[in-house]
């Protein structure tokens, strides 16, 4: 028996793109040509927005009663395997690593060229990415991938529903306003924190993820474009106001802060704020 349109509805091929980023509380030191930062001394983890992308893919697979494959892709140096395994420990099935030690120096156009090159070969129905990365903050890659693939794309989603082969999402706008839109696969959605509650890895999946074979590809095999921009002058943000930085023993700090607030007339002699 042959059911013409059943493939898309009963079996979904889902891709989630995740990026490994440094913990933002680390100390960032410019590299020698100031194009980006040194890597030493930083702790690495999954980009916050991407955890919501992973969760949404897993929720959809559950809704489809397992009728979906969730592939997770990350581009970067050997260290990003850690982040791929984290996604597998959350429940993704296949892990793919485009091994590119130069990835952190690549611009969004180049990253998008690799993701799209890979995705084109695998014919995904639905792609989830984070809305932006915490380190580059460009919010470009997802949309550029979608444009290359000719997929429908909506950015910054904070609600997702799948019903009767149609997707309804809410997009977040300024001031908490929302826009509800409907679209069909093939599609790419960029995820915003608040979309769902990313799960913690569970023991069986953690065990599985440790043994999982991760597919390794090279940038050239998926297609890597030339850069469109160059980056330099990586530096700390200028402090606009002459900020008073207070450090030391907490009790003494509390006394200092209160007298400062009084001096500047922010709080009155007794009681609350002026």
């Amino acid at each position: 028996m042959w059911f013409p349109s059943i493939r898309m509805i009963s079996w979904m091929n889902i891709l989630v793109c995740v990026k490994q980023v440094p913990d933002m509380e680390g100390r960032f030191v410019p590299n020698t040509d100031e194009s980006w930062h040194e890597e030493s001394g930083l702790a690495w983890r999954m980009n916050d927005h991407d955890t919501f992308a992973v969760e949404q893919a897993l929720l959809l697979r559950e809704q489809l009663k397992g009728g979906a494959t969730v592939t997770v892709l990350s581009i970067g140096a050997a260290r990003v395997v850690e982040t791929i395994r984290k996604s597998l420990a959350m429940g993704c099935v296949h892990g793919v690593h485009i091994e590119d030690p130069m990835a952190c120096e690549r611009d969004p156009w180049q990253i998008a060229s690799m993701i799209a090159g890979f995705a084109r070969q695998r014919k995904f129905d639905l792609v989830f990415t984070g809305m932006q990365s915490e380190d580059r903050c460009s919010a470009q890659v997802g949309v550029l991938v979608a444009e290359r693939l000719g997929y429908v794309c909506v950015t910054g989603i904070i609600a997702f529903a799948w019903q009767d082969a149609a997707i309804t999402v809410e997009r977040e706008l300024e001031g908490g306003r929302r826009c509800t839109v409907r679209l069909k696969v093939p599609a790419l959605l960029t995820c915003q924190p608040g979309l769902n509650t990313p799960r913690y890895p569970t023991l069986p999946f953690i065990m599985k993820s440790k043994r999982a074979v991760i597919e390794v590809l090279l940038p050239e095999s998926v297609g890597l474009d030339e850069p469109k921009v160059s980056s330099r002058g990586f530096r700390a943000a200028e402090r606009k106001a002459p900020v008073v930085v207070l450090e030391g023993e907490s009790k003494r700090l509390a006394v200092e802060v209160v007298s400062l607030l009084e001096q500047r007339g922010v709080v009155t002699g007794r009681g609350g704020v002026r």
């Binding site: 933002m24 960032f28 100031e34 160059s230 980056s231 330099r232 002058g233 990586f234 700390a236 943000a237």
Partner: peptide
Amino acid sequence: CCNGKMRRTVR
């Protein structure tokens, strides 16, 4: 970049 902690110049 880096969630507002750092800056860079893009050409």
